[in-house]
Design a protein around this nucleic acid. Structure first.
Lengths: 157, 157
DNA sequence: GTTTGTGCAAATTTTTTGCATTACA
DNA sequence: TGTAATGCAAAAAATTTGCACAAAC
């Protein structure tokens, strides 16, 4: 599936979501969705604001916060809190299920997959009578690039 | 191990940590550690500030932030970000390893254990050449108390 | 005695809110 | 045309920083 196909799909999904929830289909909402699906990796609200401002797209931070909330509800975006005091997001449609590994030296975020997490998720839900929709698993450690190259890729000071 | 024994142990561990790192052993730092280990469950900086103020303990928010940072490094406290815009913490010494389950209806936080997560942690570290120190796994869903009692325990509005 | 750590207050950063205006349905 | 959504700016909330004073080492 091409990037354009993905963008078309999420636009349709978001439109359906807005319809069902009785929200209006404003151009800002679709522009924000489009912007998010034009980038890979994680982003925060401020970056998104700057991206759109640079494209001369007139949008307010308030609308970004509002729209991100809707996109979270629509499961088109997920939220993370890798660093304190600032939320990070990433697109989630057609993006393979994965979890994160954070290096406490260079603060770089890596991704990995393990199918057993889905099993644990299902079993825990059954056991505790909980309808589990999603999960977030993060491992914290050191990426062992220090000894290899003398320093982590993004090591500070 | 009694609560008092635990408090004594963490005080020794924190003292050793401060020594090794070349930090001073101030009474404020031990008072904060003691306060944290006097409570169960999760807390945020503001609650901790109020707890200590109520006990007439003179402490500033700046010192709380500073000390929490040291306690995180010493692995005596862990940080979570259950809700946006605010960090939550919990004591971690001698407190059984567990993960969290959050109800999106009542926002209550539940705990669970699954030994397989340790296996995934070890295998992921070996596979990606990463020295993993810790993890955080959170499941998001609905706690099914709605249908049982008409509403989640802390359901809003 | 030196220098780190502290409290306080101000500053910064992140997010939310109020309100007049715009535009979707 | 009625009402939800927007932009803007102000407010609120969370965290960090600067500085004079206190107290570990």
């Amino acid at each position: 599936m091409s990037d354009q196909d993905t963008k078309d799909s999420v636009r349709v999904l978001f439109a359906e979501f807005l319809q069902q929830q009785g929200h209006r289909k404003t151009p800002e909402r679709f522009a924000i969705l489009d912007e998010i699906y034009s980038h890979n990796g994680h982003f925060d609200i401020e970056s998104l604001y700057v991206y759109m401002k640079n494209k001369k797209y007139r949008v307010s931070r308030a609308t970004l916060y509002n729209t991100i909330e809707l996109l979270l509800q629509a499961n088109l975006v997920t939220r993370h809190q890798f660093v304190k005091g600032q939320a990070h997001f990433e697109k989630s449609y057609k993006y393979k299920q994965h979890d994160h590994l954070i290096c406490s030296d260079c603060e770089k975020v890596f991704e990995f997959c393990d199918p057993r997490i889905q099993q644990i998720q299902k079993m825990t839900g059954d056991l505790l009578n909980f309808s589990i929709k999603s999960h977030a698993l993060t491992f914290y450690g050191k990426c062992n690039r220090l000894s290899e190259k003398g320093a982590c890729e993004h090591l500070k000071s």
